[in-house]
């Protein structure tokens, strides 16, 4: 069960109840630095809820989350993001009132310094910082391949590009860890393949990913480690090969998937 490597994120005995529903039930796992970890499970398994707990949007009913050695349970979402963990959303949350590049520049917020007063008086340091951040945002857009759309209004982008934009915005924060909630949902084959390429490239540059995905082919192809949830319970964990061999997983999840499709 032990993997080699340095632990970046630890989820320990996390439980979340909504009234009578136990959405996440005593789930624990580690994420190592530089790895791609997939969280899979049928609809309603508790994946998004788990993400919301890790990123601080929801408080767990019990359990702890540790990131980079610090206990982040109960911290506010923006505080967790400032520690270097960003995310994308299952139902896109692009800033539709901005241009594409401004979306990404907003992503770089945590590494900038300009205060309200400095911004209003536009002291010289602000100009420098603006220029630097715009260049950086451009590089992020290049990485995901939509730099040519930089000055379009974000809301005019097609769905697939909005997904890429969310990733560009997430990496602009220069995080250590990115959580992707169903990044391939709604993408066609070509777009999905490009997205996989982007993720693999970013991993090479040192980023760590946790992602939720229903498309098993993609999951098996790119993840180093997989956590399987069903009904809020972790029913299995391991490398793609181990997951294939895990009877409980196949019965509860993969089998069901096949009968559905």
């Amino acid at each position: 069960m032990k993997r080699n490597g340095q632990v970046l994120l630890t989820v320990e005995h996390i439980t979340k109840q909504f009234g009578g529903v136990v959405a996440v039930n005593d789930v624990s796992f580690d994420v190592n630095k530089g790895e791609i970890l997939a969280v899979i499970g049928p609809n309603g398994a508790g994946k998004t809820t788990l993400f919301n707990i890790v990123t601080g949007i929801l408080a767990p009913s019990s359990g702890t989350v540790r990131f980079n050695g610090t206990d982040i349970t109960g911290k506010k979402p923006y505080q967790i993001a400032q520690l270097g963990m960003t995310r994308t959303f299952q139902n896109l949350e692009v800033f539709t009132n901005m241009s594409v590049i401004e979306n990404v520049m907003t992503g770089a917020h945590r590494n900038m310094k300009t205060s309200f007063l400095q911004a209003g008086l536009r002291v010289p340091s602000v100009k420098k910082e603006e220029k630097a951040v715009e260049e950086k945002a451009m590089r992020c857009l290049e990485k995901v391949g939509i730099a040519h759309l930089a000055y379009e209004r974000a809301e005019t982008l097609p769905y697939g590009n909005q997904r890429l934009l969310e990733i560009a915005r997430a990496i602009a924060a220069e995080p250590a860890l990115i959580l992707l909630d169903e990044p391939m949902a709604g993408l066609n084959d070509e777009e999905s393949r490009w997205l996989v390429e982007v993720i693999l490239q970013l991993r090479k540059e040192g980023l760590t990913f946790v992602f939720v995905e229903h498309d098993m082919e993609t999951v098996m192809a790119i993840s180093d480690h997989i956590v399987v949830l069903d009904n809020g319970v972790k029913i299995g964990e391991g490398t793609p090969e181990e997951i294939y061999r895990n009877k409980a997983v196949v019965a509860a999840y993969l089998g069901e998937e096949e009968t559905v499709c």
Binding site: A81, E93, T96, T106, G107, H109, R110, A170, A173
Partner: peptide
């Protein structure tokens, strides 16, 4: 105004 969830998520 755009999305409070997303601005939270980038550390604002």
């Amino acid at each position: 105004e755009g999305s409070e969830a997303a601005s939270d998520a980038v550390g604002i």
